[in-house]
Computed example of a mutant assay.
Amino acid sequence: MSRPRLRHVALVVQDAAAAAAFYRETLQMEEFHQDPDGSRFMTDGYINLALIQHRLDGDVPTGFNHFGFEVPDVDSVADRMTQRGVARPVLRGGDRPFAEYRAIDPEGNWFDLSSHGFLPPGTAP
């Protein structure tokens, strides 16, 4: 891989289980991960779709949330970002096997950076 590739899209949904069933049954996506909060992670084998469970006590509305890029080297991308006056990406917490860093573009849109991709571990594109 010589340049970043868009590999991940995340939506905040009211019912992650129902949304996952829709994508599984109508578009034949595979569910590969479920968070304790009920969020579901789907893949078509190339791009993954995060269906983030909406929380009534949260501050994030339903709809589009963020996207993610697989990059050959997070540090070099982070250096280019800071040279453009954008905040350096920060390490994300949690135990998911993807999305190591959270970044923000000049317009305030969130995106993730990962050097190992967003598909389930052991899955080749």
Rank of each mutant, 00 (worst) to 15 (best):
P72N: 11
E70W: 12
F111I: 12
D79Q: 15
R84V: 06
W110V: 08
G117H: 00
G58T: 06
R84N: 13
V71M: 08
R102V: 15
G68D: 00
R92V: 11
Y46T: 15
P97C: 01
Q83R: 09
V86D: 07
E100S: 12
T62W: 00
R55M: 10
L49I: 08
P61M: 10
Y101R: 05
G68N: 00
R80F: 03
Q53D: 02
F98K: 00
R84W: 13
R55D: 15
A103N: 04
G117L: 00
L113D: 02
D105C: 06
L113A: 05
Q53N: 03
G94H: 10
Y101L: 04
F69C: 02
D112G: 04
S115Y: 02
F64V: 06
V60S: 08
G94K: 11
P106S: 14
R92W: 02
M81I: 06
N65P: 03
F111Y: 14
V90A: 13
H116E: 13
D59A: 12
T82A: 01
H66D: 09
V90W: 13
D44Q: 13
P106Y: 11
L91C: 04
G108Y: 03
D112P: 02
N65H: 12
E70G: 11
R55V: 12
I47H: 06
H116L: 06
I104R: 05
N48F: 08
V71A: 08
A103G: 10
S114V: 02
P61G: 09
Y101C: 04
D112R: 02
E107W: 12
F98H: 05
D59L: 11
N65D: 12
M81K: 08
D112C: 13
G93T: 12
G63T: 09
G58R: 01
T82P: 03
P61W: 06
F111E: 10
S114T: 05
